[in-house]
Amino acid sequence: MPDRSSETLDLAQRGYAHPDVLVSTQWVADHLNDPDVRIIESNEDPLLYASGHLPGAVEVDWAHDLNNPLRRDYLDQREFEQLMSRLGATPQTTLVFYGDKNNWWATYAFWVFQLFGHDRARIMDGGRNKWHAEGRPLTREVPQYKPTRYKALPRDDRHIRAFRDQVYQHVQVNLPLVDVRSPEEYRGERLHMPDYPNEGALRGGHIPGAVNVPWSRAVNPDGSFKSASELRRIYESEQKLSPDDEIITYCRIGERSSHTWFVLKYLLGYDRVRNYDGSWTEWGNLVNVPIER
């Protein structure tokens, strides 16, 4: 018998390995005024938060808040403490991320926050689109929260982030990678915006051994995540990945692949998944590394 569409299933019925990491739009609606919950919107489109957001939600912008403005790296421990202070968050605060593009940028922010070990973090299933489609309220009022004194853990990149030398070693021993870009990018038929110096690459193709699973296959048309059985069909039956595998995900700059990292790690319970944020903009520009098409 075919599975019921995961769009109609409650989160608890979808068979996820770590179901607590997702919350529904109704759960968020019920916690809009909960002082122990901070709702965070992270989008690709810089106009969306200002045009209307969930009541009480603060914005975390991937470019301004998460990236170092000079080095290609993320914020450091002190900057993360300042960010959390601005958000009015303490180590006990439950952070709920949501955003546009089926939570693509929300999972990216979630991933960066995990580098600092703030594990009281959730994703609102379906993101901004689902909230909007359900006719729930949006406001343009920007909330102000009393700054906190947040003491962060030192950033720890070892467990969920991969660097190029580690990726190279990974390739050498034939461990699996998941390329979450479009099939055209994977095949090297298209280089995104070659006239865009920040994010271009000199060579097209993919890292040897990588399978291609575009990130958006993990979501339903309404933006909610597919059920665990549907996800297993994609990643395990089709791509032959296993929960015991050590896996690296990548895309162009590491944002789309953070979505797949989230799916594998939390929804399917793969413990050893890292996101390679250097991704194709680094690998496709490196001298003398192997590339497949």
């Binding site: 690709e44 489109d45 810089p46 991937w62 470019a63 301004h64 995104h192 915006m193 865009y196 920040n198 994010e199 162009r252 700059i253």
Partner: peptide, 12 residues
């Protein structure tokens, strides 16, 4: 118009 920090996908 949108600033140079617009994401590549959006800018494209």
């Amino acid at each position: 118009i949108f600033g140079s920090e617009i994401s590549m996908g959006k800018g494209q």
